[in-house]
């Protein structure tokens, strides 16, 4: 077994967030949902897209970091996976975009 895979601990051991912090994260997610619905009601035109997607990004980061324990992850490869996937997707969308907006 190589070094980066050693010192593994099953996730269920209480080295991650506490029960209370899970509930706190849930509360934050609900508040953010309420916020994004409220913001959408204001008719902010184009800013609404940025605000709504920004809030969605914050919400999913909370889920990734706390519910999915990415914040407590010690393996580099797993930490990098989501940025790699998002990056690949950004490139796919970006280069397609370069065609669609200039056509």
């Amino acid at each position: 077994m190589n070094a980066d895979a050693s010192r593994e601990m099953p996730d269920a051991r209480p080295h991650g967030p506490t029960t209370r912090s899970y509930v706190a994260v849930w509360g934050a997610l609900i508040v953010l949902t309420a916020t994004t619905v409220a913001v959408a009601g204001f008719n902010l035109q184009k800013i609404a897209i940025i605000v709504c997607l920004g809030i969605a990004a914050v919400k999913s980061t909370l889920v990734l970091f706390y519910f999915m324990h990415l914040r407590y992850e010690h393996r580099l490869i797993i930490k990098l996976l989501i940025p790699i996937a998002i990056g690949a997707l950004a490139i796919f969308i970006g280069l397609t975009f370069s065609d669609v907006i200039t056509r």
Partner: peptide, 25 residues
């Protein structure tokens, strides 16, 4: 644990679908 990770992913995808379809007008 792994089923939980999958389920959180389903949640995350909805977190993006929700504003894209219901909110951004």
């Amino acid at each position: 644990v792994n089923s939980g990770l999958y389920w959180h992913l389903v949640d995350i995808i909805w977190i993006f679908l929700f504003p894209l379809f219901y909110l951004i007008t």
